[in-house]
């Protein structure tokens, strides 16, 4: 029997993998990919809660659906920002974006 904890721990593992990626990547696109991983880990938790704790109107699944839409929106804005910065700084590596660093 697969319990709720199995899914929660899977979500925690994926979240930590995404955290590691977001902390170590130099590439801005790689950082965005890691953030997508973290979003998905949160989604797994929501759907697992929906199944195991029971919700009459499926609040967990609806919340996960909204989160997919918001993650898509965040990803679009982030990628367009990366493109805009690339046009100016000619690089996608975040340690090159030190224009505002004192």
């Amino acid at each position: 029997m697969i319990s709720q904890n199995h899914f929660l721990i899977l979500g925690a593992i994926i979240f930590c993998i995404g955290l590691f990626g977001a902390l170590t990547r130099r590439n801005a696109i790689g950082i965005l990919m890691s953030i997508e991983l973290m979003f998905n880990a949160a989604n797994i938790n929501l759907v697992a809660f929906n199944k195991f704790l029971g919700s009459p109107d499926g609040l967990g699944q609806i919340f996960a659906l909204f989160e997919i839409a918001l993650a898509a929106a965040a990803c679009v804005v982030g990628l367009v920002l990366v493109l805009a910065i690339y046009r100016n700084a000619k690089s996608v590596f975040v340690d090159k974006f030190n224009l505002m660093k004192w």
Partner: peptide, 14 residues
């Protein structure tokens, strides 16, 4: 693969 996880959690539409 995460879509497969959703299928295991009875969330077909998701």
């Amino acid at each position: 693969s995460i879509a497969g996880i959703y299928l295991l959690l009875d969330a077909q539409f998701l």
